[in-house]
């Protein structure tokens, strides 16, 4: 393995601790032993590579990708931004997947029993491949808040789950995006796993009026950062793949 293929180490201060009692589900699902620190080998600096042919032309458009009899109900929004490494370079050719509740806060999922109705025209998932500069864009319906079983009166703020691939398996990341100005952000137990306000801010998409489509769709901007490699030769090779 070329030594410069490895990733900069992860900083635990950038993430919520595994054991975060405010979010009760973490109490029994967090390791007690410290993680074993491992310098990267080929198993970590390599990872699955995806290309435009892996996904469909409407996969990034949640307004259209599950249409049965018409378009889904709710606020039409564009979520867009860039996928970057720690040195601010765009990561091109990377797979981004997302999923979310519908406008009423209900998931299309066998185990979601919230009383808000399923929207027959909304699947709630999408995916895209970043362009050569790391840009991505989705079109969707703004998800609604919903209650969840933690404390009795806990509600999730509107949020979208993001799943990110870099070019190495060590970069694999799942996160959640919140919407600027949502009053539930201050009360959410899952956001509270990040006591540092700087981390919360990094997960809050900002209203982006200039990227909105007048008379049609509002836009929010959300940039994401994955760990970088000591050099970028491999990302360059992957672009356009």
């Amino acid at each position: 393995m070329r030594p410069d293929a490895e990733f900069f180490p992860r900083d635990p201060a950038d993430h919520p601790p595994a054991y975060s009692p405010v979010y009760k589900s973490s109490v029994l699902r967090s390791p007690r032993f410290p993680l074993l620190s491992l310098q990267n080998s080929l198993s970590e600096v390599t990872g699955p590579v995806f290309g435009a042919t892996d996904i469909g032309p409407l996969d990034h458009d949640l307004i259209l990708n599950y249409v049965q009899s018409g378009e889904p109900i709710g606020e039409r929004v564009i979520i867009h931004g860039r996928l970057l490494d720690g040195e601010g370079r765009g990561l091109g050719g990377m797979l981004i997947e997302l999923w979310q509740a519908n406008a009423g806060g209900r998931y299309r999922h066998a185990l979601d029993t919230y009383l808000a109705p399923i929207d027959p025209n909304f699947g709630g998932c999408g995916r895209t491949i970043t362009d050569a500069e790391g840009n991505y864009s989705f079109r969707t319906i703004k998800p609604g808040p919903y209650p969840f079983r933690n404390r009795v009166n806990d509600w999730r703020p509107a949020h979208i789950h993001f799943s990110l691939f870099g070019s190495g398996f060590a970069q694999r990341l799942i996160t959640q995006m919140y919407f600027e100005g949502d009053p539930l952000i201050a009360h959410d137990a899952i956001i509270a796993t990040m006591p540092d306000p700087a981390l919360r801010d990094r997960l809050t998409a900002k209203l982006d009026l200039k990227a909105s489509v007048p008379l049609d769709t509002l836009a929010y901007r959300f940039d994401m950062v994955l760990r970088g490699r000591r050099q970028t030769r491999f990302e360059n090779k992957l672009q356009g793949s």
Partner: peptide
Amino acid sequence: YLPETPSQTAGPYVHIGLIPRQ
């Protein structure tokens, strides 16, 4: 350097996004 985006739990409905058949 730009800090890595914070992780958040995948939650109980991760299947919708990653394995929708389930």
